[in-house]
Amino acid sequence: MTLARPFRALPAATPQILTFVLVLLANWAVFPDFFDLRLQDGRLFGSLIDVLNRGAPVAILAVGMTLVIATKGVDLSVGAVMAIAGAVAATLAADGQPLPVILAAALSVGLLCGLWNGLLVAILDIQPIIATLILMVTGRGIAQLVTEGQIVTFTHEGLIAVAGSALLGLPMPVVIALALAGAVAALVRFTALGLLIESIGVNRTASTYAGVDSRSVLLAAYGVSGLCAALAGLIAASDIRGADANNAGLWLELDAILAVVIGGTSLFGGRFSILLSLVGAFVIQAMNTGILLSGYPPEMNLIVKATAIVLILVVQSPAATRLKGFFGPKGGRP
């Protein structure tokens, strides 16, 4: 779209940023050392870094998911695609293949999965939730076929470095997530892709009648989502030095959708912000980390998380925005 957009979007981002800050402060309240950072073997070490590092896979998924949701779709298969990509990467790594081959193979598989989803949605006109459900269910089976039902472990230095190394003190997954989000945000905003995606999401018929190549745009959105899932899968596999077809990325599609929603993109498609989805992903992880640090019994995890999410969504809801209009100088939307 335009250069002006990111700057114009800043005031609109306030609820997300505020939410993130509040969750961090809540963590600080339950765990006073939350903001402590130190250097450990050349990488920063501390709970804040854990939030970013552990949140990176969901953040990466959320980048692709944002585009898909903006087209009024949804990609339920990303968790399964993570498992497939992880399985492919681990199998090749265990086989001693060089890193470029591993990366190319895993990312290609992810792209292929995404294009498959795109094909079902764009060409065959299957509802996104159904179309991607197919791969969500079969994908894990495919991953199990690749690993032959085992946890494939590896000692491949190159692949381990994907999640295990650091750049400027930041863990590599964080660097990857930020770079990816920046790259995709630039891609959609400095080209017309963003406008076309939003336009299709709001009204696909009208966009098609205006000459927009809806099919290619949808294919691109699902393709990017598949690619992001593969990248997240690579990081997950690299992190535990193995591919666990049963558990890798399990339920992460839901976290990714939630991240996008917290980021303010409507499930009905249209306006989106990749950077705010990223914030959404880190909000979710900050809650997870906070719960782990708090020392509450694990039986409370889901209740605490659900309560926090309800609060966040209520605060960000259109009704609350209208309410704020009474107090603030500027009402929400015109």
Partner: peptide
Amino acid sequence: TEGIVGDLSVRENIVLALQA
């Protein structure tokens, strides 16, 4: 349902076909 892209701005609606 077939013409306007409701949530997008007047500007974006006007340039949509040209951009496409």
